[in-house]
Design a protein around this nucleic acid. Sequence first.
DNA 1: GTTAGGG
DNA 2: CCCTAAC
Length: 606
Amino acid sequence: MAWPRWGERAAAGKLALLPAGGVDDSHDTLVNKSEENDFEKKGTSDPVVYRLVRVEGDGTLVPATEDEVLQFDISFIMRSQLNFKKINIIAQENRLQSLDDSLSPPSECRVIHSQHSDKLLPEQGDNVTRQDNASTETTKSTVLNDSCSAEKDKADACSRPVCDTSTDPSVSGVNSSMPDFSILRGEVCLDDLTIRELQEAFRATFGRQTTVKDKIWLKRRITMGLTNSYDVPSSGCVIKDYKIVGKNAKKDISDMDERAKTGLRATSLVIYPGNEGDSPSSSYYQSEDQQDSSKRVKRVQIHNDEPQGNLLGEQCTNKRTRKPTKRYIEELSDIETHDSTAKISSPAKRPAHDEVLIKPRVTPFNEADSLGTIYPTRKDTLGGFSVHVPYVSRMRRGRPRKDFISFADKEPLVEPKGIQTAVEMILANDGDKGNHLREAPEVPLKVSSEKGHIEAVDSKGVRNLQAKVYSAVTKPKIKRGLTRKHHRAWTLCEVVKLVDGVARFGAGKWSEIRKLSFASYSYRTSVDLKDKWRNLIRATKTQLPAQKDGACPRKINPSIIPIPPSILLRVKELNELQLQGGGFTAPVKFSGQDSKVLQGKGSGFL
DNA sequence: GTTAGGG
DNA sequence: CCCTAAC
């Protein structure tokens, strides 16, 4: 696509966007045409500062008036999810359309007025995806027909009261008059100008006023506008024929880079040519800036000339290959907060404002770093917003649990990757098996366990919340289903060995019992022995009385292997003995044989 | 690592 | 049989 010179042949009375350096009486020649073609070819993300111009009757281009700029700003930024390419297309369409318009009286005023603006509010978020619509709408808005003055006044009337800057009397008295373009003619040394003059020069350059009193910024901005270049010094430069004649550019560029690191944001009306879609970093800033701008202008807050905002607009242009880091995003949010609060008086718009800002910032960038490495992310909510955050294991922050180490030893898959892999493998295997022993109780067990655990915690009121969270979140995912032991029913032989072991070593000496009595039962752990002993004791309390009462114990536990009453009696006696003896377990060891004989006699077993 | 105890 | 705290 050839670079359009769509300002040059626009119909008289039309407004046109033109690269800032391009305003020239000899409208056949665009000063920076070649540069722009470079943009087109390379698709660089360097922004070009455009100014709004009006095509006079004789075909010359003059900077648009404040009102025109204001209107343009509103309508343009309202639909600011555009890149420059699209504007070019639109502009060419406009050229055709304007030719048509010149043949017949304009019947339609394409000025954004209040109703339209209000309607745009909810639509704002759609603009990102509704490029086509935005384009067509912009088609209308980028061409403002002067003959629609009545409509335009309406728009002014509604925007003025809110937009104080445009009528800020403290700025200058040149509010309504045409800017003094002579200030830009010939050799211009901005250093010699006062702030007032700089502001006037700014107005002459960009066609609109500024309240900025920062001399350096004004000079840079004007220089950029006149030269259509970002490599401009902040001082010591002379502009002649829209080119920099001065020096000190080096120093200032490094200064620019320096400030680029601080990451200030752009809010100005800067168009980034091309790149939308094929350069994430570029589109990031682009959409960011434009969204922000649109947000402000939506409330008709035309503060696009704030230095702090524009600084970044300047910066992000030369070197913008790096995506923002997380920290950068966070810091940016802080800056944004201050920035906005400083400029936006209405606190009511804060939530919506943030909402728009957070989304584009956070969502895309947590998934890949600057090197393109993809990180696993998970959805999380942050302050009510759904965002992607890196998927990392949630480690306890407090003192590590002791058994976490052994736990980790058992499962060498503590790393997130490993966890996922292992879980996936297990699940896949289980999936093949269907509702097998492990799969079936998986989910209900998880829930009931957590629930029960929490309930226990609550009743105890001892364990802290973190432990709860940890056990609820991490444990089930990692551990559950991985190492569940195959269920082995206790045989009568094992029970006897256990009772014998308890009689010999005492209850509680589970490891000893396991070593000595369960050497050939490797699958029985000391915990198993303990649990079984506990169950035996419970059985004595539930079954023995029933037995005494004459009721049938099997009716109570029909599916469980019945434990002979003799053994239960022995268990009961041993238990009572343990309780009576208290810590006095040693004698049991030696008297175990005796007691066993005695009890065995009583139970008629063994 | 072992034990106690809740689940 | 699991899980955890406490030792």
